[in-house]
Nucleic acid binder design. Structure first.
Length: 353
DNA sequence: CGTGTTTGACCAGCGC
DNA sequence: GCGCTGGTCAAACACG
């Protein structure tokens, strides 16, 4: 386990950002997200654009109580998800995470994330299923959609490394897993989300002094991956990009056994509680209403299923921080809530009897 | 000893 | 075709 080995990460805390955001100009990250309630025009646009309930607009205030409710530190600077993005299936290799890079991206073209300079963001498409990748150039052919150690036969899959890679089906483009990125204010890179991850790579990020780490869910049958990188513009911001969907419950070892405080000390807690935001423009009736659901979809198999059927997945950027759970959230149907608390790590629902 | 990280090499896609 | 870049592999390593 990594346990207390994140101090090296602190090495990244250098003021190295000389990056000229001429092209990125502006930010998807809200420069001053804490302006609770001070709904900037951009915010309004964002919210309205995504048809977000009005309560969203005013849900900037009760972070503390919220955090408390979740047993989290009320320290706002600790770890806060204040922006998230659903990438959908397409991705331009060049811009890749450019939008995440901090400046504010404009992941142009086919259904990526478009960010306006004023932190007003919009997103198009972002098919979760990545069904028709007509023009999609999935760069990773060898990246097997299947969890490599597909249970039993596992081992040989890796086989002779490079030479005899897996035979890629010509003409068949690998479907891109839906991606879901969000930014979190955190001092540590790897946010604890209840699942177990194994780091399998690290690469330097272009135009950024911070490396990008690649993680894979350690569960055999699960092929979910995630990338973690620190925003070069705001070192205190960690960008986490989930790819794929967990097809298994959260590791039992973690369920109900996580000590919030301990986790808090060693990891940034992946806290959906600090999210607020916009629903996907795709206005899918079955789609989630607010970011928490997106998170849950990513975090829970059951929830994620809902997304698959829709075809059009969620697409949207969540910009939040110091935000309270929408009250409406607490009004979720009992069954849904029950489901959530059943599958979501206890940390998500710190509700002591 | 099992599990996870580090790290250099490799691969594929894309732009020039 | 070449070089760049993002993403992945896997041996070596570290740690409890």
């Amino acid at each position: 386990m990594s346990d207390h080995h994140h101090e090296p990460k602190d090495l990244y805390y250098h003021d190295l950002f000389q990056y000229d955001h001429g092209q990125l100009n502006g930010g998807m990250i809200m420069n001053n997200p804490k302006v609770s309630g001070s709904s900037s025009p951009a915010y309004n646009n964002l919210l309205q654009g995504f048809d977000v309930p009005s309560y969203m607009n005013t849900s900037f205030t009760e972070y503390n109580s919220l955090a408390t409710a979740f047993g989290l530190s009320s320290s706002p600077s600790d770890h806060e998800v204040f922006s998230s993005i659903d990438e959908g299936s397409h991705q331009k290799p060049v811009d890749n995470l450019g939008y995440l890079g901090g400046g504010g991206g404009h992941v142009s073209s086919d259904g990526e994330v478009h960010v306006t300079p004023n932190s007003s963001v919009s997103s198009s498409s972002a098919e979760a299923g990545a069904e028709e990748d007509s023009g999609n150039k999935s760069k990773k052919d060898r990246q097997q959609p299947q969890p490599k150690g597909s249970s039993e036969e596992g081992g040989d899959v890796h086989s002779p490394k490079k030479s005899s890679k897996i035979v890629k089906k010509k003409g068949e483009k690998k479907q891109r897993e839906p991606r879901f990125a969000f930014m979190t204010k955190s001092e540590v890179d790897h946010l604890e989300d209840g699942y177990r991850w194994r780091k399998y790579g690290q690469k330097a990020v272009k135009n950024s002094p911070y490396p990008r780490s690649y993680y894979r869910c350690t569960t055999q049958k699960c092929g979910v991956k995630k990338r973690v990188e620190r925003s070069f513009e705001d070192p205190s911001t960690v960008i986490t990009t989930y790819e794929g969907q967990h097809n298994h419950p959260i590791p039992a070892t973690l369920r109900g056994s996580i000590n919030i405080n301990a986790a808090h000390h060693h990891h940034a807690l992946f806290s959906p509680s600090s999210m607020y935001a916009s629903a996907a423009p795709t206005t899918s009736s079955s789609g989630p209403s607010f970011p928490q659901e997106y998170l849950f979809q990513m975090a829970t198999p059951q929830m994620m299923m809902r997304n698959d059927g829709g075809g059009a997945g969620p697409g949207g950027i969540y910009s939040s921080r110091n935000v309270n759970f929408p009250q409406q959230y607490h009004q979720l149907p009992a069954d849904q809530y029950g489901l959530l608390q059943d599958v979501v790590p206890s940390m998500f629902f710190k509700h002591e009897p």
